[in-house]
Design a protein around this nucleic acid. Structure first.
Lengths: 344, 344
DNA sequence: ATCATATATGGCATCGGTGTCAATGAAAAT
DNA sequence: ATTTTCATTGACACCGATGCCATATATGAT
């Protein structure tokens, strides 16, 4: 009687079958699989033919055991990433799959302690070779240190360098914030508003700083409202800004979701967009196209950023040359939600 | 000289360390790990203590090799799933993680041949124990047969049973379509419109059939426009419907994204929603809350459906009892985009 | 001709678990 | 007292690959 029910599809050829078919030892087949140069060209051909004939695929598991690597990469994400998860995942897989890695996903909560325990547990369980971590989880205080101690290679996406993470794909959020201000200024806006992201979030503060700096330099005023990247806070922020006596004619929301909230308030109050109010979001998510009017937003190339992160991670895992720093180009993509300032 | 650079974090305790610490053989430790009943209670305690003390985690890879199972589950998705991917992924992981499985994601194209080759290649490479496949990929002709031949356990999400897949989580799309019609009829609408999904998609045709059936039975008229689940086709469909002399007062779009397109056209044409036009979507995606007005939509509990799919998949893999059929309850969630028919 | 050197290949241990079957000892049956 | 039975545990092979080291053959140097 079995202690556990062993069930397996039979018949997958093994390296041994290939060796037999090609009339060599398994060790030589292994060399071919690992592209070792020390194999005679003719032998290699014979082995490759056998591999093709048998439709042999090396067992990633056996290999993992022998090499003490899992060829698995963990992608740590949070529900805040929902709107961009697909493109990020696609970017990571596009880069990892051809190099023989698979991607394990791990949704995680955001609260500091829970997140750290959760991620560490995941790493221990799954024995991934490395992690790609998305913001905002990448910014969880203490996470970098905990992972460093666990000695897991990590590449993080973030807006700012994070102490403790050796490898971070950073985007120039401050410059982007300035670019948004410039966009609105160029359209003639002089009374601006901003719905901020969470105050403890570096990305939000960077965007804010760039925006306010540029606006102030140009002599425009900036009214601020707090927000936390949620739709509801976008609504609340917009209401607060639009209730002012001298209401802003251009509002920058620190992400697309809050911008959607701003558009909603405009609709409810009967303020035409962009006739009476211009709105800019941030992320360039799926959402931008689906809102009416289509949202002007700062495009962040998530797929490319994710691919770059994966590339650097693999370089780190394999000890190869790190590819050159990835230059993330953020730019305002004008759509229908911004237009000339109303001539009051 | 090494042929490949072996890099490994040292120090992870193995089953052997645990056995030594507890003063038993590794085989007995293994029994504890696998919850075999044939272990003395006291011995078990001692071993569990040792496991805890050493913070031992069994190597999934070694286990996989010995048991001829990978404890990996593949999630096949497509960019059409972008808006609901997060909740689905969350649902699958919530169920698989506690049972010792990890989830590998695999984005795939949609074209018949490419998708089949792509998925088969993925299965061979990754040696997953099973697959969860999302629509529309689950409906790719020939895929079910190909996977059956490869003998991979599969559970699919779909709107209708799919020949060839033993296990499909089906939702009652036809009834849901009828429910949408009922919702609009109850609000007094008599001239209805529908923007369909792709004609070769079972889900779309089911939704259509239910909607038209119910509307016709109540003596309401239904104007139709083609669509393909894209935003642009929602726009085109709405334009077509609203250009009619007797334009519909209630429009059902077969998914949320097209419904967003309908809202957009309404906005452009200056038609008040829901004052002059009611709009209903389908999916209950993230989008519904972020549009203005908030979209009335048919909520599909993707997270629960995905969890149910994962549960059945694991049952199939482990040969256990299949859980009872999952009853997907679809229901219209009224929001701001539907209201009483204009009294013209 | 002899020895060093490089190239190509194979043998065997090993990675960290589980499967199979045998061994042990205590309790129950004869 | 002897045999049977059951519960518990261990020994050893094995899963399918790679690491390390040895070996055989060809090539060049002395």
């Amino acid at each position: 009687m079995h202690e556990t029910p062993a069930r397996a599809r039979e018949g997958d050829p093994t390296i041994e079958d290939v060796a037999a078919a090609a009339g060599v030892s398994i060790r030589t087949v292994s060399r071919v699989l690992n592209k070792s140069p020390k194999v005679n060209a003719e032998t290699r051909q014979r082995i490759e033919a056998a591999i093709a004939a048998l439709r042999f695929r090396p067992s990633a598991r056996a290999r993992a055991l022998a090499m003490r690597r899992s060829f698995l990469i963990g992608l740590i994400h949070n529900d805040r990433n929902a709107l961009v998860l697909d493109s990020i995942q696609r970017g990571v897989v596009a880069l990892t799959a051809p190099r023989g890695y698979e991607v394990i996903v791990h949704p995680t909560p955001l609260e500091t302690e829970a997140a750290i325990r959760d991620v560490l547990g995941f790493v221990e369980r799954s024995r991934v070779d490395g992690l790609v971590i998305l913001p905002p989880v990448s910014g969880v205080p203490g996470l970098a240190e905990a992972l460093a101690e666990a000695q897991v290679p990590v590449t993080a996406l973030s807006s700012v360098p994070i102490a403790g993470f050796a490898d971070v794909i950073v985007s120039e959020e401050r410059a982007a914030g300035a670019q948004v201000a410039r966009h609105l200024l160029d359209l003639g806006h002089r009374r601006l508003g901003i719905v901020n992201g969470p105050a403890d979030t570096a990305s939000a503060m960077e965007r804010r700083a760039g925006f306010i700096e540029e606006a102030t330099r140009a002599g425009a005023s900036v009214a601020e409202a707090p927000g936390d990247y949620d739709f509801a806070s976008g609504v609340a922020g917009a209401e607060q800004l639009l209730a002012r006596a001298e209401r802003p004619t251009g509002i920058f929301a620190a992400n697309d979701i809050m911008a959607a909230g701003v558009l909603k308030v405009a609709a409810v109050r009967g303020i035409a967009v962009p006739g009476g109010l211009s709105v800019v979001g941030f992320d360039g998510s799926l959402l931008t196209r689906m809102l009416s009017p289509a949202l002007t937003s700062v495009l962040r190339p998530f797929g490319d950023m994710a691919a770059a992160a994966a590339e650097r991670l693999i370089a780190r895992i394999e000890g190869g040359e790190a590819p050159p720093p990835f230059e993330v180009e953020l730019r305002v993509v004008p759509a229908e939600s911004t237009g000339p300032a109303p001539s009051v």
